[in-house]
Amino acid sequence: MKVKVYLEQKDKEEIVNLDNNSNIKSLLEKLKINSGTVITANSNNELVTDNYVIKNNERIKIIPVISGG
């Protein structure tokens, strides 16, 4: 299946091919993004965790966590 991935840090969108029923964890592994540094949101702009199952053609946003103050 195809997933649209928006990378907040780079303000850039790309298409990623994934196996059906893949979750956020496998998406991040494919993109070589450490899951300990980002949070993710689904097409409805809901924050979702690593085990969220991605739908075909869904748009996933990857948002870097901000720690500085």
Partner: peptide, 18 residues
Amino acid sequence: IFESIKADLLGTCDTKGV
């Protein structure tokens, strides 16, 4: 929301600026 975040992996204002 942030349970899986690894503090040591995050950038800081020291390393990335602000």
